[in-house]
């Protein structure tokens, strides 16, 4: 191999590296431009036949203490039965820097729920312990459910 060919390989690799970094930047900053309705569709599809029913934005505010005017759409499903802690929440934020605050509020609720159900319903407590809270750019996701992982997958694919 001549000396010149080496330099071209190296430059090629640097280009691939830069392209790759740009590609994963999208991955790490996350978020979505889709509307809450679009993102919700595949997620609610996984909830068909479950014990969860759609709740209003007001219910979400009551449960989590959100500031409604920071949001650009909420999808909230919860169980009607008090002894069932399963719930799914997707919030689209107007400003992605609010994500940590919203995550904090969600985690607070999970902790409160955990304290409530700890002694009485170990199975519910266990579900809460395995709950998923994750934010991705301007969307925040939360789910307590036996099938939390599957629902999370659906959400990730929807973004």
């Amino acid at each position: 191999m001549t000396d010149k060919k080496y330099i071209w390989i190296e430059i090629g690799l640097v280009v691939i590296l830069i392209v790759y970094i740009i590609f994963i930047n999208g991955f790490y900053s996350g978020g979505t431009d889709k509307s809450i309705a679009e993102v919700s569709k595949p997620v609610t599809a996984t909830l068909k036949g479950s014990t969860l029913s759609k709740k209003t934005n007001g219910d979400a505010v009551k449960a989590f203490g959100f500031e409604l005017d920071k949001t650009d759409g909420i999808m909230y499903y919860a169980a009607d039965n008090v002894m069932d802690v399963s719930e799914v929440l997707i919030v689209k934020l107007k400003d992605k820097t609010d994500a940590p605050d919203f995550e904090e509020k969600i985690r607070e609720r999970v902790t409160n729920q955990e304290n409530l159900y700890k002694g009485y319903a170990p199975k519910q407590y266990s579900l809460l312990q395995n709950s998923i809270v994750a934010s991705s750019g301007n969307t925040v996701f939360y789910c307590t459910s036996k099938t939390a992982n599957a629902i999370y997958e659906a959400y990730k694919n929807a973004l």
């Binding site: 170990p122 199975k123 407590y125 266990s126 579900l127 312990q129 395995n130 036996k146 992982n149």
Partner: peptide, 9 residues
Amino acid sequence: NRYLEAQPK
């Protein structure tokens, strides 16, 4: 007193 993690897909 909890559910165990199932085999992940």
